[in-house]
Computed example of a mutant assay.
Amino acid sequence: MMRRSLTATPGPARLRISLAAQQNGCASGATEVTSARAAIATAQAGLTAAAAADTAARTRYLAATQAVAGARKTMLRVQRQRPYRSARVAHAKSAVAIVTKTMITRRAQSGKATAALTAARTGLSIATTRLAGATSRWKTTCAAVKVTQQKLTGTAPTAELTARAAAISRDVVTQVRATFTTADATTVYGITVHRSVAFAFQRMIDDAKADGIVLSGGGFRTRQRQIELRKINGCPDISTAPASSCRVPTAIPGRSLHEIGLAVDITSGGKTLTAKSAGFAWLKAHADEYGFANLPSEPWHWSITGS
């Protein structure tokens, strides 16, 4: 957000404070939505299990009631037989008592299963309501971020801010390059970048996707990989030849912002961006909102300095 954070007036300062809070809220909202979606999945699994248990319990209860009916029918038949046989009647009565006891147990089990199913349905309903609320709050907060960013865009002298932002970006590069280790890098959707730009980069990818533009690419690479690319791209001299002398422009090892995770070669749909691609058009219109600028000679190359 570096290019949108410079201003000398109180109004924009307040806007920046609001923007920071909104961005935090947007990030927290995303976490809340993810949690709510997980709760939905858990509740749905619980409902599926409860429904299966209820069906099984009902089936067992039905079988038990049928067994009772059969036992009673047998008992009546034995009681009517002549000559009357006390032992057979006693045995039939015992059978009725046993299956009746089983039926009572099955009825209780079925009742519990039905109650559990009702609770599972209620749980899913609550989880669904929570997800709807979390999603609504998240979208509202993230929409507020865009509104505040748009307000900030028009609150300061553009030329002055651009110059100051560029100067700060160069200072950041100098400071990062002096102390950079791979521990300073993190991964955003499979793209390794410096952690200082990770949040802004992730928001840029997310917002582009929301507009129908799917972006990917390659960020950090080691100095050794930069040397290999210089060889592959036919640079006249690995250490001294300017990037423009290579078949594909490739920075001198030690100067590439890729080596400190502050540049990304962006692709869309698995293809390198061109000046006529939809991905480039979107980035040209929006990338500076997230602190990224393009190297004019390379439509795919975006960094915090545009170099």
Rank of each mutant, 00 (worst) to 15 (best):
G306M: 01
K146N: 13
T34Y: 03
Y189D: 14
S125Y: 02
R14F: 08
M75T: 02
G11T: 10
L15P: 01
G269C: 12
A13Q: 13
I168G: 00
T31N: 08
T162C: 06
G269I: 11
R72Y: 06
K151T: 11
K276H: 04
R121N: 13
A67Q: 09
G254V: 08
L62V: 13
R80D: 11
L229R: 13
W302H: 01
E32P: 00
Q149W: 03
T140A: 15
P296N: 06
R80N: 10
K276P: 00
Q22L: 15
G217L: 04
A13M: 12
P236H: 10
K93Y: 09
A57D: 04
Q79Y: 04
D54H: 12
T122K: 10
K209A: 15
G217Y: 01
A38K: 06
R223E: 10
E298S: 02
S169C: 09
A64G: 03
G219P: 02
Y61M: 14
A52H: 05
D171S: 07
G133W: 06
T31K: 11
V176L: 05
L19D: 01
V248Q: 12
D265N: 09
T305H: 01
A183R: 12
V248E: 13
T162P: 00
Q79G: 00
P10A: 09
L62M: 06
